[in-house]
Nucleic acid binder design. Structure first.
Lengths: 226, 226
DNA sequence: GCCCGGCTCCCCCGCACGGGGGAGACGATC
DNA sequence: GATCGTCTCCCCCGTGCGGGGGAGCCGGGC
């Protein structure tokens, strides 16, 4: 089921906005093992292109003129033999269409503002035959408003905390696994200073130790995986 | 923010078939750390029972008379403060209702023919706040071999690690911010045992301390925010 | 002028943590 | 029967961590 040797992964981009297509192309083409073999501006053009180009993956916007991503997904899966994997792309959190697309047989979905690494990863995953939902994307979907998103309790904890600039720096470095001594070296201050900041931010976050503080950082979206 | 030492995980079973309820009860009650606190035969009875019993987890069939699992999920999440985690149960793979339920806010789902160990595992996972998309239930549903998502380095580290079942449990609890003593209490073992598992998994993960291990867990998608 | 908050650094101190050992029980595998 | 891995628990030991203090410096606000 895993095609280790198939190089490169071929991708067809389908989006009505040229800018989005260009962005996806740039992100994907930067990978040596991914090749964008074609583009389309609406769902109606997808089927002939899929037949002609035989891409491994179709990255497709859900909202398009003429034929939207849901209908296009259905059409491809119904009419094309050995169909490509389909990743639907959406701009909006909690897009109803996404669920429709998944039911229609899409293999995954992504938010347009996902980080490049996530997009690349998603394409690779579906190309390998993984049919799964991407936690990061779901997190975004479920997520909220503003800079922080995630577990409401964690967000609340971090907002209530009102960390100072230095404390935020220290928390970020803690969330990268650095010890107090390493943080001190990085910030060019003494370890006692770092300990002071750490104690302060632990108290503000209501965390017992650095591990709990880092958890809060992840849960709140203050730092993000990937 | 941090959910410490909640000892028996309390579960409410909701299914129209008494046989299924009996089976679930037998499977779950066999675990010392899981307690079935109530049962209901249809979705309409769920809300008062949730209010009365305050279960940690509701295991709920999707297809039921009167009020199905999707509507019941929506109702619980809309009307109950500090709602329980909800695991929906389905007989069929690729059940359309499952997507509906997830969209309604369910935290996980299970196939009825899952092995007892998987059912128990799923209940523990959602009780710990684990993400719905990662666990074995999804692999089962997707029919594919499970794979981690996220930072490739972190994923690689976790896959290379080949953690034992116990080590995975310990890592999950570490990622909820629990101390060794708390993990020991939760798993009903000695603190020395936990330390042993912690040392072992730290070595396998190439992590220097528990904070770095938790970071790897988040980065790889082994645990997910939210 | 004064005061306050942030950043810096220092002390002492207790303890959880993690490393390095070892060992018995159990089940699976050979 | 012997072997292996897992889970369990024990020892010692050093140290990084975090709590509780205090203190000097600086900039902005009153």
């Amino acid at each position: 089921m895993i095609y280790a040797g198939r190089m490169p992964v071929t991708v067809l981009l389908v989006d009505d906005e040229p800018l989005v297509r260009a962005g996806l192309r740039a992100v994907l083409e930067a990978q040596p093992d991914i090749e964008v073999v074609g583009e389309a501006a609406d769902g109606a053009a997808v089927i002939p292109l899929v037949r002609q180009l035989r891409p491994d993956v179709v990255a497709m916007d859900v909202r398009m003129p003429l034929l939207d991503g849901i209908e296009a997904t259905r059409a491809v899966l119904r009419t094309v033999a050995d169909p490509p994997k389909i990743v639907v792309i959406t701009t909006f959190e909690n897009d109803e269409y996404v669920y429709e697309a998944l039911r229609a047989g899409a293999d995954g979905f992504l938010l347009k503002r996902a980080r490049p690494a996530e997009i690349v990863h998603a394409v690779r995953l579906v190309a390998e035959g993984e049919s799964l939902l991407f936690p990061a994307a779901v997190r975004e979907l479920a997520g909220a408003h503003g800079r922080l998103r995630g577990n409401p309790d964690a967000v609340a904890a971090l907002e209530r905390a009102a960390l100072t600039g230095r404390e935020e720096e220290v928390l970020r470095l803690m969330a990268r696994g650095l010890s107090n001594a390493e943080i001190a070296a990085r910030l060019v201050v003494g370890t006692e200073t770092v300990k002071s900041h750490v104690s302060s931010l632990l108290a503000k976050l209501g965390a017992r130790d650095r591990t709990q503080a880092v958890i809060t950082a992840y849960e709140s979206g203050f730092v993000a995986p990937g």
